[in-house]
Simulated scan of single mutants.
Amino acid sequence: MYMKFELSCFKCQARTSEALVSTSRLLSNDHCLSFWVYMYTTIASLTHIGALKVVLRYADRNVTVWYLLNQQQADWTYAQVTLPANSTNNVTVAIAGVQGPHVMGMIGVDDIAVAPIACPVKPEVAKVEAGDCTFDRDLCLWEASGGDESSSSSSSANLAKWHLADNSPLKDHTFEADEGGYAYMETFNRISKSNLTSPLLPSDTFFCFTFWFSHVYRDTAELKIYRVPDGGGQGGEEENEEALLWEYNLDADDEDDTPTWQYGQLPLDTTNIDYRVVMAGMVTRSGWAVDDVKFYTSDTNCRVYPSTASPV
Results as ranks from 00 to 15, higher is better:
169 P>D: 13
165 A>S: 15
127 K>G: 07
111 D>F: 01
172 D>N: 15
182 Y>E: 06
110 D>P: 01
106 M>T: 10
166 D>N: 15
187 T>I: 13
163 H>M: 11
174 T>L: 08
96 A>H: 01
88 T>G: 05
98 V>G: 05
101 P>S: 04
134 T>S: 15
81 V>P: 06
153 S>L: 03
96 A>T: 03
112 I>L: 08
106 M>P: 04
180 G>T: 07
175 F>M: 01
165 A>F: 06
91 V>F: 14
176 E>N: 12
168 S>R: 02
94 A>M: 01
117 I>Y: 12
95 I>T: 00
93 V>R: 02
137 R>L: 06
181 G>R: 01
155 S>R: 14
130 A>I: 06
147 G>E: 09
171 K>L: 13
123 P>N: 10
115 A>E: 09
151 S>Q: 07
104 M>N: 15
185 M>C: 03
176 E>S: 08
81 V>E: 08
149 E>N: 14
176 E>I: 06
142 W>H: 12
77 T>F: 01
187 T>C: 11
131 G>N: 03
101 P>Y: 11
168 S>H: 15
157 A>Q: 14
135 F>L: 05
157 A>M: 06
159 L>R: 09
118 A>L: 07
114 V>G: 00
156 S>G: 04
167 N>D: 13
164 L>I: 11
132 D>I: 14
89 N>Y: 04
171 K>R: 08
155 S>W: 11
176 E>G: 12
163 H>D: 05
155 S>A: 15
163 H>R: 08
106 M>C: 04
121 V>L: 00
118 A>N: 09
194 S>K: 04
123 P>R: 00
118 A>F: 12
187 T>D: 09
124 E>K: 04
134 T>M: 13
140 C>D: 00
146 G>R: 07
104 M>L: 09
152 S>A: 08
82 T>K: 00
90 N>I: 07
126 A>C: 09
130 A>P: 04
194 S>R: 11
125 V>E: 12
78 Y>N: 12
115 A>N: 11
132 D>M: 05
108 G>V: 02
89 N>M: 06
110 D>E: 09
192 S>K: 01
132 D>F: 08
116 P>R: 10
124 E>N: 15
103 V>K: 10
139 L>M: 04
140 C>M: 05
188 F>T: 01
101 P>A: 12
185 M>P: 04
97 G>H: 01
164 L>W: 06
95 I>R: 00
132 D>H: 06
132 D>T: 14
159 L>M: 11
95 I>E: 00
94 A>W: 03
78 Y>R: 07
166 D>E: 15
97 G>I: 00
105 G>E: 05
191 I>V: 13
183 A>S: 10
112 I>P: 03
181 G>Y: 05
119 C>E: 14
93 V>Y: 02
91 V>T: 09
169 P>R: 04
96 A>S: 04
